[in-house]
Nucleic acid binder design. Structure first.
Lengths: 193, 193
DNA sequence: AGCCCATGTAATTGAATGATTACTTATCTG
DNA sequence: CAGATAAGTAATCATTCAATTACATGGGCT
């Protein structure tokens, strides 16, 4: 297989593994197994585990901004703000992809990862204000809802949907129309511990 | 020293170290050094690293709820909602204490930590609704702002306050009156990497 | 004094893990 | 066909780390 294609498979696998275990908790061997290659191959292709994580983070940030920008061109009755929210939920359902972002956001003390997380976060804020026309307050509120969504998915609150009334209500408030969709996805990928 | 007092020192140190490095990234030796005891002592007192993290998480959750409940009894002109927000910011400034919560929230795949994080999160939601009288929507919005605040502090966005105009604006939106206070605290504890 | 339980540590260990080295296989080019 | 370059792995290494064991210290009690 061409290394470009293999690279994508490894990045996909790494995103998945990092999202479950976190940066420090994930091992290059788990990533290699998930990508169906050998562990040395992963290391040689990316140099170090940190560089791999940085690439995952960078790609996820790019993907998020691209998904948001794609909504700018759409003609629709639903307001842009809502469309962006739905686009974000769509992104998150894709095999828990963006949870790796959350792990990156929490590693501000790491010089490399922290820098990337800060600048990536600010890029989103700038997009909302400069391109999507949000006010500072609206942008803040939008991102706050995104962080709550990340947190709920990160802690697998969807697991409690069936048994806890409050969990049901809370998820309903955040996800609105996309709730059924999200639950379906959550059940597809059970706790791979 | 009595073991009860030592226990508190170790929990304090563990909270600090976990908040910087995350659960998997922190080592029992770093915690022991921070608490000025030997590494075996830490392990023997708490059994395993996971049990130690669970105790840290549980204590932080208790502390948060206690701080919130304390606001219920206060007579003041400022509305309860705002007082709770300020109380949360006060909690967070205390040596980054509650960042450990964030790390816990992101480990939903771990059976023990995930369970605790989910039930602790729902406890806060229930408090807001049943004791503080929030509507479901208000409670959701309040928690979303808390998650954004956690994220901004986790990624050390305060480091960019002086150099980035957008970072300044974003932090201003979230922290309002408590901004100066927070920056002062953030500068007191520089990146202990 | 003499015992004993609580507080604490030094030394060690076994497993996990990121990284390196040295090899194999296959495809493309001249 | 030769031979080189890219794709990929098995085997191994050095480190790190949580956990265990065995030992030291000291204060309270009879």
């Amino acid at each position: 297989m061409a290394s470009d294609a293999r690279r994508i498979l490894i990045l996909d696998a790494a995103t998945e593994v990092f999202s479950h275990r976190g940066y420090a908790g994930a091992t290059t061997d788990q990533i290699a197994t998930a990508a169906e290659v050998s562990q040395p191959y992963v290391v040689r292709m990316f140099g170090t585990k940190e560089k791999l994580f940085v690439e995952v983070l960078r790609r996820d940030l790019d993907r998020m901004l691209a998904a948001f920008r794609a909504q700018l061109g759409v003609e629709s009755d639903t307001p842009l703000r809502e469309r962006l929210g739905l686009a974000y939920i769509d992104l998150l359902q894709d095999r828990g992809l963006l949870l790796s972002l959350m792990h990156g956001f929490v590693l501000g003390s790491d010089p490399v990862i922290g820098d990337l997380a800060r600048s990536g976060f600010l890029d989103v804020y700038r997009f909302l204000k400069n391109e999507a026309g949000f006010s500072a307050d609206d942008a803040t509120t939008f991102m706050a809802q995104g962080m709550l969504l990340n947190t709920l998915l990160g802690m697998r609150m969807t697991d409690k949907y069936d048994t806890d009334e409050d969990a049901r209500e809370l998820l309903g408030c955040v996800l609105h129309a996309k709730l059924d969709f999200m639950l379906q996805v959550a059940n597809q990928s059970p706790a791979v511990v």
